[in-house]
Design a protein around this nucleic acid. Structure first.
Lengths: 405, 405
DNA sequence: ACATTTATTTCAGTCAGTAAAATATTTAGT
DNA sequence: ACTAAATATTTTACTGACTGAAATAAATGT
């Protein structure tokens, strides 16, 4: 059995089915071979073969217990398959203004450790940036007695314009320089495969793997934090646009020559919905009022301040208009409004939903579902972890040899 | 060699390469085997095999003459391949308010006949609709001495909400009834495969196969006629949304509680850009003025009417705003403004382009190309023909037997 | 004529996927 | 308990798409 002869079928082709099987198991948590076969429109024999390979590679395993749901009375019971959580350790890391947050998860996405690394400067040189990432990862790994070498993959979420396929960052607010090829500099400090991606896209990945997007093919994820972000998943794939600078929903124009936005343009949705926009409005009305946070404005509105209520109300109306435009354009299965914290009730109110409904061109069919998801602080890092798991899966499946006869 | 045993590989799987080769040849007009191999990342041997099958099926042929461009000095010259135009006759048909327009084309898309069939009523029952289609197709076929039986496929473009994959029309302004399953009733009158699709999507197909979208992977096609339509092509595929009712660009809201639209909602782009909207504006200003067409408004504007110029100007501004939002969301390679007639200069003016540019969130990279395409009357029918060719291709490739050893 | 270059085809082999048959594991009925 | 029926999975034998390497084809340069 000389191995010298090169394989006769391309790796890509050889592994599409195994990859599809793995993805399907991931999206269903646990599923039997028969169900995989019918879902992927393939024969049971193929599934037996693919799952055998995935099991021997340590990526999946049979669920030990009895099948919880009997689909029918008689017959051999189906054996459930699920990801083998223990197989690989991966990390997700989100770079924010004042901190990097890291989460370590197993191959199923179960959190094992998390760590918050404060940042002295919001902007760093690429070299400092990469070293800081390494330090943060080391710190997190140490919590569970692991080292960087134990990581099978890391994903880094960053605000800005990222060409994820090439690990290239055109521009980011966290970096002092433009056009950085992280494919070159990450390996110098980090001894495992590392992937960099736009943070809004990673939230979409979080929803797809761990959240409300699980099992869906076409959905949109809107994030509201300082700005308004959008992640687009079409046909199960993240849509990144031609040059990787699409999904700029926060800067969609909702008013001709409208309010001034931080980006320098006018009429952007963000200039009506972003926290800085609300605070600005309030101070324009009355210089003596100076709310520091959106929560302050809430308090005022709740205690009967008409102006505060009006400011929040308009934000909601504009937000609803933007969402209905997304529905009109994409006709998704679901729109997920994804947030780290609570405190954006004015965007999820009944009035906003009414506005959305009244802005969607509706022909018989019901509106797509609109779901609000409060993740808590780790949303961004979890998204990065989801992406890391996905990328590690691809690498590991590629390493599986041809099926043993 | 008994044929009784069922094939061991699924048809879909068996034909992906052949289909990809065929699509590639179509998108390049003519191309050599070597170039196909490198473009599709496959081996020359595979291309030889696939092209041999396509040639024996009559779908493609070798270009007889010498290769026009010598890529290098020496060596065996590459043989160009192209679609075999003579192989199949297909028809595209567009249903408009007052007429059906038919175009017959060969397999390469070369027009062979065209025919305009006036309609007594804008709305028909499904039965009358199908019979009228048959009559129109017969009339067109007769022009070149053919009959319905000579057609290999027909595609029908219609305004409304169409589930093209299932030949199902949820709603159309041309039909008196909703929820019609044309998969059931078309075969009763039309003896060849027939496909029904939304008309804006078909214009996108026209651009993809015969126009500026040729060879592109991600582009948008905006049509301006009575209303504003949008066709979305992502990764070379028409994006239809989850329920087939996406791409409602004409009803994207560009103004909170803005002008009333024909759809009953307020602030739709169409309510600022559509011809009826412009005419309405003019009469509001001065009841004595009553322009019948947009051309009338042009004439006034050109002869110094400030009001007319203002009406057109605002339409342009709103249109530019909408386009820049599309760019922000989709980041396409190209946006094609596709129109049947001339006479929309106010939407293609320098001011509008400036508005677009000022509304796009731009980071270093250049704007996507914005191309204006005046097709003339047959735009819609040509789009239908493009789709018909595509569908016939799929059917014919499916019929190719396994590769002869 | 002959070497060189490039395109295409032929050849022999690999391997993913298949249908059908075999096997495994359960319940229902007696 | 035993058998039949039902359902899930695996095994078997095979098909056929795809491959690299070698052979062949068709041109140009010397």
């Amino acid at each position: 059995m000389l191995k010298s002869k090169a394989s006769q079928t391309s790796i890509e082709q050889r592994n599409t089915t195994r990859m599809r099987v793995l993805d399907h198991i991931r999206s269903r948590d646990s599923v039997s071979r028969i169900d995989i076969a019918s879902a992927l429109q393939t024969s049971p024999a193929t599934v037996t073969s693919a799952t055998a390979d995935l099991i021997s590679a340590g990526l999946i395993k049979e669920v030990p217990g009895d099948p919880p749901l009997k689909s029918s009375k008689r017959g051999r019971p189906r054996v459930l398959l699920q990801l083998d959580g223990g197989s690989y350790l991966v990390a997700g890391l989100k770079v924010a203004r004042h901190a990097m947050s890291v989460i370590l998860v197993d191959f199923q996405g179960t959190p094992l450790a998390s760590y918050n690394h404060p940042l002295a400067d919001a902007q760093m040189t690429p070299e400092v940036f990469v070293r800081t990432i390494r330090d943060a990862l080391q710190e997190a790994s140490a919590q569970i007695g692991k080292t960087l070498e134990d990581l099978s993959g890391v994903s880094i979420g960053i605000a800005g314009l990222v060409d994820a396929e090439n690990n290239f960052v055109h521009w980011s607010s966290s970096l002092t320089e433009r056009n950085i090829d992280f494919g070159q500099i990450l390996p110098k400090e980090i001894p495992c495969p590392a992937f960099i991606e736009n943070d809004a896209n990673l939230v979409a990945k979080a929803e797809q793997h761990f959240g409300y997007g699980k099992g869906l093919k076409n959905f949109l994820v809107v994030t509201i934090e300082h700005g308004v972000g959008l992640g687009i998943v079409l046909d199960g794939q993240l849509y990144r646009g031609e040059r990787g600078c699409g999904a700029e929903f926060g800067h969609a124009k909702v008013q001709l020559d409208g309010a001034l936005c931080q980006c320098g343009q006018r009429g952007c949705l963000e200039a009506y919905v972003g926290d800085y926009a609300l605070i600005r409005e309030m101070t324009v009305v009355d210089q003596n009022q100076n709310p520091r946070t959106v929560a302050d404005i809430y308090d005022k509105a709740r205690s009967g301040d008409v102006m505060a209520a009006s400011v929040l109300g308009r934000a909601g109306q504009m937000f609803g208009l933007g969402i209905s435009n997304l529905i009109n354009l994409f006709d998704p299965e679901c729109i997920i409004l994804s947030g780290g914290q609570k405190g954006l009730e004015h965007l999820y109110s009944d009035e906003v939903m009414t506005r959305i409904r009244s802005g969607v061109v509706n022909v018989d069919t019901p509106l797509p579902e609109i779901k609000v998801h409060h993740w808590g602080d780790q949303m961004w890092a979890k998204g990065a972890a989801a992406y890391a798991i996905e990328q590690v899966s691809i690498l590991k499946v590629k390493d599986i040899p041809a099926h043993a006869s």
